Amino acid sequence: MKLHKESKGTIIVASIAFAVVAVLSIYFLKNLSLLIIIPLLVIYGLVFWFFRVPKRNIQDHTENVIAPVDGKVVMIKEVFENELLQTKVIQVSIFMSPLNVHICRFPVSGQVIYKKYHPGKYLVAWHEKSSTENERTTVAVESLTNHKVLFRQIAGYVARRIVFNCNEGDAAKAGHEFGFIKFGSRMDVFLPLDTEIICKIGDKTKGGIDVIARMTDQ
């Protein structure tokens, strides 16, 4: 199983912690040490599972808006986007549990025209206000269909590290990785009002694969 490069520090810390607790358990608890070691081994395995990098057959897309992450669609609503677009848009929010793949992908193809990091709170990621109050990033892409599409990585109650590896002027390719969020979190995608929304609340998404919306060239 291939692991994401962001796993290195976490796995080192987890390995040291597991080894120390296991040794102390064996020394002090003797035969009862398995009551501690087995649950810890399960948690240790889940750390590796969290950082897995699944193989995905990423296609080229022009009009399609691709799910940027694995997770569950928890919100589809009309909102006013006041950071960059300054207009009403459709917000599609996808929540990622700690068991989901946390690679973040471009939802559309085009060119990156904006990026910004925002420090903030750590409300639970499904909270509506987390989109504007939590630690987050904002990225905007001028799509191949000549639309401005904005999207945000949002830290959750557990997530404390957001990575986004793109810069203004970079080429964006729908479905390809631009960042990573550690542990439970959320991604919001803000689309023009005339966008055809294909997903619905409750849908499970596979990042880089599933089409969540479609925009026609303007």
Rank of each mutant, 00 (worst) to 15 (best):
V74I: 15
G169Q: 09
H127N: 15
V108R: 03
K148T: 15
F151M: 06
K30M: 07
E168F: 04
P39F: 13
H127S: 14
V69D: 01
K116V: 04
K115H: 14
L123V: 03
G169Y: 08
V211D: 03
K148G: 00
P192N: 08
I181K: 00
H147M: 05
G45Y: 09
V112Q: 05
T87I: 07
R136N: 13
V211Q: 14
L41Y: 11
L24T: 05
V20Y: 06
D170F: 04
W126F: 09
S97V: 07
D60Q: 13
V108P: 10
M187R: 03
I103V: 15
M187S: 08
R186T: 01
E196G: 03
F190A: 04
M1Q: 11
S131W: 02
Y27H: 11
V189Q: 02
V47R: 03
A125S: 15
V89W: 05
V74G: 02
I162S: 11
L191W: 06
K200Q: 15
F28I: 02
W49L: 14
Y27K: 12
Y44N: 06
C199F: 06
R105S: 06
Y122T: 00
T205E: 00
V47P: 01
C199Y: 06
G110C: 05
I103S: 10
I201Y: 03
I90K: 15
V124Y: 12
I103F: 02
F183I: 10
K2A: 09
G71M: 00
K182C: 08
R52G: 09
I209Y: 13
E142Y: 10
D60G: 05
